Structure formats: C-alpha cells, structure tokens
Simulated assay, not measured.
Amino acid sequence: MNNYHNKKIYVAGHTGMVGSAVMRALQKSGYKNLIAVSSGQLDLRRQSDVEDFFEKQKPDVVIVAAAKVGGILANNTYRAEFIYDNLMIEANLIHASYLHKVKKLIFLGSSCIYPKLAPQPLKEEYLLSGYLEYTNEPYAIAKIAGIKLCENYFRQYECNFISAMPTNLYGPNDNFDLQTSHVLPALIRKFHEAKTNNNPSVTIWGTGKPLREFLFVDDLAEAILFMMEKVEASDLYNLGITHLNIGSGKDISISDLAALISDIIGYNGKIEYDTTKPDGTPRKLMDVSRINSLGWKYKTELEEGIKKTYDWFLNNYIQKV
C-alpha cells in the first residue's frame, strides 16, 4: 500500500460532481496537501498554461476528473467540442505529468468507451472490439485516447499512469440542466417540477426499455482512493488490461428507474414515453469482478443514493434557480 498522505495531490476538475467527491474522500481520509484550481484560473486546454502550472505546483499525484460531459442530447449536439476539449485536457495533463515526474496519475473515463453492441456485462477486454454508439462517439473516442495515453506512457516511459472506467454516476453537484444532463438527474428534476406544478404526466425520452447501471459518486471517489493507494500500472498492464471498471454490477430499466424516482419524490401522475426520441445503447452493465477481487466494492444502494441526491438538489440546486 502506497502512502501518499504527505504528497501533493492535484485533483483536476475539483468543482465538478466527480472531482468534488474525490476532494471530500481525500479530506475524509486525512489527506491535507491538496491542490485545486478553477477552470477560470487555468484553462486545461492550453498546453503552455498547464505546463507552467505543473512547473510551479510540482504535484506528486494527479487525478484527472476534468472533462466536458453531458447526456445524449449534449453529446450529439456539441460533437466537435466534446472531442476537442476532452482530447486537449487529457493530453496536456498526462504529458505534463510525464515531464514533471508525477508519481501516480489516475485518468477517469466513461463506460461509453465500449462498443454499442458489446457482450454484457462489459469486460475490460472489450475495449476497441466493435463500433461505438453514434450519439456519444466523439466523447468516447477522446476517452479511449486518454486510456491509450496512460498505457503507452507506461510502456515507453514506465509512468505509473492508470485509468478507471466508471459506470453512470449521480450524486451531489450533479448537472440538473434538462438540455445537457444525464438521465437520472434529469428525471429527478422532471418529477420534482411535475409535482410542484401539479402536472398530470411526465414524458420521458425513448421507450423506457434500455438497461442502465448507476453508481453513487461518493462510492466512485472511494474507488479512486483505493486505486491510488493499492493499484499500480504494472498490475493492470501485466494482466493485459488498460483500465479498471468501476460500478455496482447491477442494472435497472429506465422505466423502473423513473418509477423509483417518482416514488421517492412523491409524484402521483402518469409516466409517458416519447418513442420518437433515441434510446441510446440498449444495455450498459459493467463487469466489476476485477476491482471487486482486488478488494473494492460499492456501498450505496440505488434508492439510498437517489434520496441523498434529491436532498442535495432541494438544498442546493433549487435554492439557486
């Protein structure tokens, strides 16, 4: 087990849902030497700015939680931004980490890196085994490039750079904007507003049949700390894999998810489906046996996590709108 408690840890993207959860987990575990800088102060897409930052700060550990993210609509609408911004962010951070001899780097990807019709559950080995889902292909290609950067900086330079592939995440600091959000926070907002406005029905995109896996973001943060302390690059690449899947290993249909969220929020109207809208990938379930066998397992069940997220939404998001 590595002890990084006295090392400088830089969390890129610390204000986002994932980055803020990682910061909470680090602080809870007694890490004090943390570096965080906002996107307004440092544009991670600019190579010279990133390298200047590394020269001044000299981090020992880098956690790459910075990314341009969104749901189906955002991914499909802002295709050029999703590939450009994510490629630049990850390339600059990974290369600067190599130049400045960072001891450990953890890159965060997404389950959309896997082929649309890959066998279920998704094993790490299925990367690059088929065609990607069209709607989020630019984002997925950028994330695959990040995984391959980490792998090949290890192969060429022996950098201790590893990648984590989380399933669909939700929790405090999520994005509840209906134009750019993922399905779970979008449903929380839709049902909350329908209840508040006494709307007779809520309309959901697609058929409700796709199956999705969800992980509470604080559980992911614990997995990141686990990987930082206990998983080395050589452990993964010697197994012939480039990353570790992180998830619950359980999935739920969108229609059942909608019913669960409706029940938690206390909405009593009808749930309708707009089948002219896309479903996306039919199923995305992670095989999490590898990280489970190493000693990490999720803790937060879906109903408990949704309740915590709805509480955060009521206490933070609603008051700001």
Rank of each mutant, 00 (worst) to 15 (best):
Y298K: 04
W296K: 08
M286V: 01
S201L: 11
K250N: 09
T207E: 06
S234Y: 04
K116N: 15
G19E: 10
V69A: 14
K28E: 15
H182F: 06
L211Y: 11
C112R: 05
A140K: 03
K143Q: 10
L285T: 11
N197V: 03
N160C: 05
K28N: 06
I89F: 15
Y139F: 10
E51Q: 12
Y267R: 02
V18I: 15
E124D: 06
N6Q: 12
P278L: 08
Q27V: 12
N6G: 05
K7V: 04
G266L: 06
D85K: 08
K116C: 14
A80V: 08
Q179G: 00
I83M: 14
L93C: 04
A221D: 11
E158I: 03
G130M: 00
G13H: 03
S163P: 09
M23T: 08
T281F: 00
A258L: 01
W312R: 08
I246P: 04
K28F: 07
E232N: 14
D174A: 14
V61H: 08
A259K: 12
A145V: 07
L44G: 05
A258D: 11
Y134H: 10
I246E: 02
E55I: 03
L178A: 01
Y78Q: 13
R79F: 05
Y170S: 00
K209S: 13
L99K: 15
P166A: 07
I63V: 10
A194R: 01
L294N: 05
N315G: 02
M286W: 05
Q179W: 00
E229H: 12
K7Q: 13
K209I: 12
N6L: 00
E222V: 05
F107P: 03
V202Y: 01
P210A: 05
T207M: 08
K230E: 13
M1R: 06
L225S: 06
I204S: 04
R189N: 14
A21R: 07
I63K: 02
C150S: 11
P185T: 08
T15V: 07
S97V: 13
K58Y: 11
Q179F: 10
I306W: 00
E125S: 07
Y298P: 09
M286R: 07
F176E: 05
L257C: 13
E158P: 01
S20N: 13
A91M: 14
A36W: 03
T275A: 02
I291R: 06
A145Q: 04
M227I: 13
F154Y: 14
E90D: 15
G19V: 13
N3E: 13
E232Q: 15
G249S: 07
K277C: 08
K8W: 00
L239V: 00
L294C: 02
A258E: 10
N33Y: 02
D43H: 03
P121F: 00
A221N: 07
A25I: 07
L294G: 07
F214E: 14
N197Q: 14
M17H: 11
K297M: 15
H243M: 11
S20D: 12
V18D: 02
I72M: 04
V64I: 15
T180L: 06
T77D: 09
I306N: 03
N238C: 10
K148F: 03
L34K: 02
A118V: 12
D177M: 02
L73I: 12
